[in-house]
């Protein structure tokens, strides 16, 4: 009996030891990087060096909130960012709204933290923006229909407001860009669309409302807005599944409390000219309309990109 009692106890202890060992291993694995540092990834929508400079205060802020050192990296593309979030080699990431909509669902355990917000023209903090199709006030184009057979400029095929949303808008109006316009150009940057318009190289182009706002401030009200999109959510900050819940929550709370004059927001303004106002916590549902809007557009866009 004594032996029989012992055996179950030993077995139970052994089992408990094994479970403890497994749990420790799991904990060790999940917080191995966290115990050393977190990786915060951004996608290079601008020059990588500027990206690093602009996002370093935000990385420092996350480090302060979690108590864990944070290293900032710039990934080559969304695929790399998605893969690294999935495999745990990146812990926090700053997604553009279209990137978030496209890739977030494919990353297991990804946690939405907050949405970036800006001050709009009226000085209100808004977590969304618009895409606009514009032409020159003095030009021959008064309406979208006048763009038929003329040169048109998008930014690039990864751009939400510079390509994907306006493409959806145009198609919704029955205008297939490849056949409607005379020639399509992908100019890489929103401000390049404005400059090409002014140079007369294109007669219409798609830009964000922030870009148009800056252009008006720089060149005066010489532009004509032909179409305005629905609201597009701004960029999202996410945490990988491996980030400790309390750390993710700390970062979410911290982001929501960031003031417009905080160091991370000031860095955005200085480096990109964004009217950065802070972050708001809206949840993944906030991106659902965009997700729905872009699904067919993306397919069509890929077809367009492949010629």
């Amino acid at each position: 009996m004594k032996t029989q009692r012992v055996r179950p106890v030993s077995r139970s202890c052994f089992r408990a030891f094994l479970l403890l060992l497994v749990a420790l291993c799991f904990l060790r694995l999940s917080s191995a990087d966290a115990s050393e540092n977190y990786i915060f990834a951004v996608y290079p929508v601008h020059d990588p060096n500027r990206m690093l400079t602009a996002f370093q205060p935000l990385a420092d802020f996350i480090a302060a909130e979690t108590g864990v050192p944070v290293r900032l990296v710039v990934t080559g593309n969304y695929e790399e960012m998605t893969r690294r979030l999935a495999d745990g080699s990146v812990h926090f990431a700053f997604f553009t709204s279209s990137g978030y909509v496209k890739h977030a669902s494919s990353i297991p355990g990804l946690v939405y933290l907050a949405t970036y917000a800006e001050l709009d023209a009226k000085g209100l903090v808004t977590p969304y923006y618009h895409s606009m199709i514009i032409s020159l006030e003095e030009g021959p184009v008064d309406a979208l229909a006048d763009l038929k057979g003329r040169n048109f400029g998008f930014t690039d095929k990864d751009s939400t407001s510079g390509y994907k949303v306006p493409l959806t808008m145009l198609r919704a109006l029955g205008m297939e860009p490849a056949s409607f316009f005379g020639k399509l150009f992908f100019l890489g940057r929103h401000d390049a669309v404005v400059e090409a318009l002014r140079a007369g190289s294109i007669q219409g182009g798609a830009v964000s409302d922030g870009t148009l706002h800056n252009a008006v401030r720089q060149y005066g009200d010489v532009f004509r807005v032909l179409a305005v999109s629905e609201s597009i959510p701004l960029d999202a900050v996410v945490a990988a599944s491996g980030v400790a819940a309390e750390h993710a929550e700390a970062v979410r709370r911290g982001l929501a409390s960031l003031a417009p004059d905080s160091a991370p927001m000031s860095a955005f303004r200085e480096q990109f000219g964004w009217p950065a106002a802070g972050f708001v916590v809206l949840g993944d549902e906030f991106y659902e309309p965009l997700r729905r809007a872009l699904e067919p557009a993306e397919d069509a866009g890929e077809q367009e990109a492949d010629g």
Binding site: T155, L184, F186, L187, A305
Partner: peptide, 11 residues
């Protein structure tokens, strides 16, 4: 060139 990617060709 194939995709009219002016944004790439300029730089």
């Amino acid at each position: 060139v194939q995709n009219s990617d002016t944004g790439f060709l300029v730089p």
